[in-house]
Simulated scan of single mutants.
Amino acid sequence: MSPSPAPRRLRRALLSTVPTALAGVALVVATLAATGPRLAPVAFADPSSPDPFAGTVPWVDPYSDAARAAAAEPDPWRRAMLEKVARGGSADWIGDWTPTPRQTVAQRVTQVTATGAVPVLVAYNIPQRDCGLYSAGGAHSAAAYKAWIDEVAAGIGSRKAAVVLEPDALASIDCLSATDQARRYQLLSYAVTAFGRYPAIATYLDAGNAGWQPAFVMADRLKKANVASARGVALNVSNFGWTTDNIAYARDLSARTGGKKAVIDTSRNGLGPAEGFEHWCNPPERALGPLPLTPVPDDVVDALLWIKVPGQSDGECSRAEPSAGTFWADYAIGLAARAAY
């Protein structure tokens, strides 16, 4: 896969309209505060610790966008395709659109844990998010971001969960000034530390994908963001890169970061990446990839996951698509129809 001509952007996930106790959430973030005391290593930060997903089942939200669309779909074939999407599940995203993050996260973790699954939360609230593009937003100050991170971490507490920390924040950091880059590293480090205070949380710093930054560049950025205190990295989030390419990239990063582990997003990579301008943004003719927790014969990879919500738009993409984060049933149906299962 050749390098992307422009950073791929993430959809702005929206809370569903079901009651708060069932509302979608997200999380990621954790790191060592540059000015605070260094804490003892946490359980999942040690690469030799057990895979947090071992012996668990995928989480499937019965009230997901795809499930609700399927329930309302009168056409049998379209309903079957939407049900296929719904059965795969996905991570929960939390950001500046989420009211009362501590309570929302706590309720979601309780709900997911009761099924025997590991909650997978994406924290997506870094200041100057997405370089001001389709998923622009984020906390309005460093202090606000730190307070938000503390709330999310407290919502999980002592329970097991996986946190994907700030998709795109490191891979796209070139868009920031030197001063803002330094602030971003400090905030990511703070987040890693905040989550690290709870030993049952496995934190994965987003590291882009195999076609974005060279491994030596990304490894340097990860170290500045305190990957040493995280479980590892998240790859291919909201992207379409082949699983095999991202496994190879994960191994390269692991060798450069002290054996750190990886999770890989396979929600839309069943036919690999598309070609052409903005191939990261709602590209046509793509397919669902391997289901969450599909076994991988590679000890660097903790899990394949659906981190992106399949069917949610990446943005308007200069065409007539829905805005970022809006569920797009026709796109979801296409992903399912072209899947290999």
Rank of each mutant, 00 (worst) to 15 (best):
D174R: 12
Y185A: 01
G311E: 08
C175H: 07
Y331W: 12
I247C: 02
L165F: 13
D65M: 04
R79H: 04
S64C: 07
L222H: 04
K223H: 15
T243N: 10
Q128T: 07
A320G: 12
R87M: 11
L170Y: 09
C131N: 07
P76E: 10
L335Q: 07
N269I: 01
I94N: 02
S141N: 09
A153F: 00
A123T: 02
R338T: 07
A43V: 14
A106M: 08
N209R: 13
A143D: 15
T100E: 15
A45C: 09
G137N: 09
K146N: 07
W97P: 01
V296F: 09
R256E: 08
D220K: 13
L222Q: 05
E278T: 07
Y134N: 07
K223L: 12
A54R: 11
G211Y: 09
G276R: 04
T110D: 15
P290N: 04
A23W: 06
A171V: 12
L27Q: 05
I247G: 01
R286L: 09
M218I: 11
D174G: 11
Y134W: 12
S177N: 13
A33N: 14
T294V: 04
R231W: 05
E151Y: 01
L253T: 04
A72E: 14
P3Q: 11
S254G: 03
F216A: 12
D46S: 08
E151M: 00
A114V: 05
D96F: 09
G155M: 00
T193G: 15
I307M: 02
P290D: 09
D61W: 10
V57S: 06
W280D: 01
T266L: 01
M218R: 07
S323M: 09
C175G: 06
V301F: 04
T31G: 15
A200R: 12
A91M: 05
